[in-house]
Design a protein around this nucleic acid. Structure first.
Lengths: 258, 258
DNA sequence: CGACGCTTTGATTAGAATCAACTCGAGTGG
DNA sequence: CCACTCGAGTTGATTCTAATCAAAGCGTCG
């Protein structure tokens, strides 16, 4: 266990005791905009689980919807496995993002939620959440918003897959991830990917090798510096441009052969 | 105006007067599982709009979320246009399916909702809907379920796009559409597509020509009969098999198990 | 150290995009 | 009534992207 993990688990332990009111994700998570009195009601139904180890799952396909989850730190993926055996990564979930909404339609989860790193999660029994939400308009509203954001991310995901070529998807992925990281107060330009190349490939609908080549290509073009799972975005503007469709206008002198 | 259109507008007119309680979609739509007394409350906020003509839109990208919509008949598409100008069809919406949830996250619509055919829609002011839902647990629950179903369809869409080849996507599309049609009481084996080839292509992330070729191929293989927008599924089992990953012909050796 | 998993790189190939031409049918107007 | 256009759909030829197959680096952890 490295120092940063140790440090973060100290923090978690502390905020675990203190509950939502002191959580650094308060503004992004369900408690946003809720008054202190009402907050306590929410706080009481939230169960804070011991750390989840990398590879453990929060729920699996076919489980009945019991709770929704929010990571306090770490990262998760949701994976749906098709009948012919290959995995589709439905989403990556960073701290503050609700996990488990996939069961809203049928009452049964349609994918597995797997921890990508050791992580702390809050578990919110869904039944109780909706009951309380019915009494607290602000929570109700926030719940809708969080659900909506999740829908929005799914749509972003969709748009990143359709009719975009491999390098565009990869640029879009890195750009989007950086944005989400900076939203939760982490550095959006230099970070460590919590997931491996295969997961990224399964998320982007590409072959693992294509993802690897894409990273190499972006590095050769001077847009990012990548070493294994460490990524630094050095030319944000260019990444943004690549991510949004415009072809690299092939400036005269440009080393692009690998 | 043809006879069937005339007939359907008579029906609509009648059910327009009678409201949710008599609507044939009642079981699928928001009123499901709601008692007659409570139903009236919902009924009072639902606005029934005059028919929407083909090509008209319910809302456009950037509009503030005002209402959600449900078609009583006809069909809609939601389209998001990328900055480089090409359209991505986010979804097709059949009667009973909520339209407009894309704005839940930001409060602003992120796609256009366009009528594919002349259609009748119910408009439900969202603000009022959540207010009432807070008082009626069964409506609250049903709202969640309908939202969840929409999320589920998005996920189906995603899975149909990722790492599937053209013919598989097309088979999946036809199969899914048939299923949805039979859910709303229409024939799932013989129907008229409300959308053109380009829309299907933009939905499936394929080129228009590829969709056309796919249809032809399915017809040559004796799975469907297609004439323009009329489709008949003649070999449901085979379509299902194609849609779910197994290799096309090769009936000799039974399909490979996972 | 050695084995294993993850990542990168290389060579080849399959599948879909693209470019282009042509068919068909509906609607228009001379 | 027929020639015309226009849009939607089909079909063909070619090109090019990314999948696949294959193998070699690299890092980590017993």
């Amino acid at each position: 266990m490295n120092t940063s993990a140790a440090a973060s688990s100290v923090i978690d332990l502390a905020s675990l005791r203190r509950g939502c009111a002191q959580c650094s994700l308060r503004q992004l998570c369900l408690p946003a905009e809720i008054g202190p009195v009402d907050l306590q009601q929410l706080d009481e139904i939230v169960r804070r689980r011991r750390p989840v180890e990398r590879g453990e799952w929060l729920f699996r396909t076919g489980d009945r919807l019991g709770s929704v989850y929010v990571a306090r730190d770490g990262a998760f993926k949701t994976v749906s496995t098709t009948e012919d055996g290959d995995a589709q990564v439905v989403g990556f979930h960073l701290p503050g993002e609700l996990i488990g909404l996939d069961a809203l339609g049928t009452g049964t989860h349609r994918c597995d939620a797997v921890a990508l790193t050791t992580a702390n999660v809050c578990e919110v029994p869904f039944e109780q959440l909706t009951t309380i939400a019915a009494q607290l308009p602000s929570l109700q509203q926030q719940l809708m918003r969080v659900i909506g954001q999740s829908v929005g991310r799914d749509q972003d995901h969709l748009e990143m897959l359709v009719r975009r070529q491999a390098n565009e998807r990869i640029a879009l992925f890195l750009h989007g991830l950086g944005e989400r990281l900076s939203n939760i107060g982490q550095c959006g330009n230099k970070f460590r990917l919590p997931m491996g190349r295969q997961d990224i490939a399964d998320f982007l609908g590409l072959a693992l090798e294509t993802v690897s080549r894409g990273f190499t290509r972006l590095q050769d073009d001077g847009v990012i510096v990548v070493l294994g799972r460490s990524v630094e975005i050095v030319d944000v503007a260019e990444l943004h441009r690549l991510a949004h469709g415009c072809e690299p206008p092939a400036p005269a002198a440009q080393a692009r052969q690998r």
